[in-house]
Design a protein around this nucleic acid. Structure first.
Length: 139
DNA sequence: GCCAACGTTGGC
DNA sequence: GCCAACGTTGGC
């Protein structure tokens, strides 16, 4: 199963907001970037991803699960834009900061480091394992 | 708040 | 189809 990373500005929609949606989760809407959209189209129900706080916070704070595959983004009529549905699974015992990620050689190829502007991105199995260890949670 | 990096738009 | 202008993202 593939793994992912979702970015959101905590001032706009943070981990606490995701948790507040409960098990029913909510649409990861508002994405207007083809690469990010294509990543969402590749997602399957049951796959997991990190929840990252961009702009402020700058750390991975939790793990979400994809519970609905890509469908029309409800925030636009433009048929180009899809979104998946995600729910929170669990927080990281210890959030992993971008600073630590950058200081970790094994994580230097992460999209988060290489292309900081992509808001929905893939995470390799190796990266997932290591980040879960660093965050103090099961993979 | 600034600005570099990046993606998109639109005139030619 | 090129590329300059523009808008947005996100680290700092």
């Amino acid at each position: 199963m593939a793994h992912w990373l979702f970015k959101s500005e905590p001032d706009v929609f943070g981990w606490d907001d995701q948790v507040a949606l409960g098990d029913k989760g909510g649409p990861w809407d508002g994405v207007r970037n083809y690469q990010a959209r294509n990543n969402m189209r590749a997602m399957k129900v049951g796959e997991t991803g990190f929840f990252y706080h961009s702009r402020s916070g700058l750390e991975i704070v939790g793990i979400v699960e994809v519970i609905g595959e890509a469908q029309q983004d409800p925030t636009t009529d433009d048929p180009r834009w899809d979104c998946v549905t995600v729910r929170s699974l669990r927080p990281l015992a210890r959030p992993v900061s971008l600073e630590r990620i950058k200081a970790t050689p094994e994580l230097s190829e992460m999209v988060l480091v290489r292309n900081s502007r992509l808001s929905v991105q893939p995470v390799t199995d190796a990266e997932w394992q290591l980040l879960c260890e660093m965050g103090g949670t099961e993979a």
